[in-house]
């Protein structure tokens, strides 16, 4: 009997998961498909990019600086054992551009911007702002969800690029300025190892995918939350957990597809 109950529970979870995915897709479809309102839409988009992107800039840049410095320090200690410290630039740049930039950037973005999006939309729902919008004949999906979604998708790659650059500069500061790796060897090895198309562009593609997934999860959790104080809290937690797991899981598949055969 216990086994049957377990099986039933699993089935119910499966159903509710599929239902969530279905509703999330429908919400995304309704908010994005339709005649675009260029003038007002652009203003709202800029405002959301400010909230989602510009306000995440400081945390992204600071963590990038420290991650780059740590990479420089750790890489130097290990490479130094083999007398290969001139390969430091290559180590830092490849690991950042391929993996750390998009992934760590996306995790920070999920924590900083994704949770804020969910909480904001959830509170709008709880205080019935969404319903009153509908009463006034304004589509809340087009008005609230769409600009936030596009803003997240635009901000994430930009932030990931900034993350890469700041972190490489951090690694440069520690490796070259402090520990004394040769400047020319640092950049020359980096340039011969990093390919613009295979590494930089694939990193950007990764961050676009992560941006899409994170903002999608965030707006869906916001609009799907229980309209109570507790519900908002639960949805915000869910956003961060699901978005982080989705980023790490997707990263594996994207890496397997992009770099698996080399």
């Amino acid at each position: 009997m216990i086994t049957m109950k377990r099986l039933q529970l699993l089935g119910r979870t499966g159903f509710s998961f599929m239902g969530d995915v279905g509703r999330a897709t429908i919400i995304l479809y309704h908010s994005l498909i339709g005649k675009p309102d260029w003038v007002n839409g652009f203003t709202r988009l800029v405002q959301q990019i400010y909230f989602v992107g510009v306000l995440s800039f400081v945390i992204i840049a600071l963590s990038a600086l420290f991650i780059g410095m740590v990479l420089g320090l750790q890489g130097y200690t290990i490479l130094n054992k083999f007398g290969a410290e001139h390969a430091l630039g290559q180590l830092i740049a490849l690991s950042l551009v391929r993996e750390l930039g998009p992934v760590v950037g996306a995790l920070l973005f999920a924590g900083r911007a994704g949770s804020a999006l969910t909480a904001e939309i959830g509170l709008m729902k709880t205080t019935e702002q969404l319903s009153s919008m509908e009463m006034m004949g304004v589509d809340p999906l087009r008005r609230i969800i769409a600009p936030r979604f596009w803003a997240g998708q635009i901000s994430m790659p930009v932030l990931a690029l900034i993350f890469n650059c700041v972190a490489i500069l951090g690694g440069y500061m520690v490796g070259v300025e402090w520990l004394g790796v040769d400047n020319g060897a640092f950049w020359a090895n980096m340039q011969s190892a990093v390919d613009f198309h295979a590494d930089v562009v694939n990193g950007i593609i990764k961050s676009v995918v992560f941006g899409t997934v994170i903002t999608w999860i965030a707006v869906f959790q916001g609009i799907d939350c229980q309209p109570t104080a507790e519900g908002i809290g639960r949805s915000t937690t869910k956003t961060v957990v699901y978005a982080s797991l989705a980023v790490l899981g997707l990263d594996f598949f994207l890496t397997a597809v992009m770099f698996g055969d080399t």
């Binding site: 800039f57 740049a93 551009v97 790659p157 930009v158 932030l159 690029l161 900034i162 890469n164 650059c165 490489i168 950049w187 980096m190 340039q191 011969s192 990093v194 390919d195 613009f196 590494d199 930089v200």
Partner: peptide, 16 residues
């Protein structure tokens, strides 16, 4: 800042 980062990644890091 994003465009400048892309330029730096293209020119300085990948040596385009």
């Amino acid at each position: 800042a994003g465009i400048l980062s892309l330029l730096m990644l293209a020119l300085q890091v990948s040596g385009l």
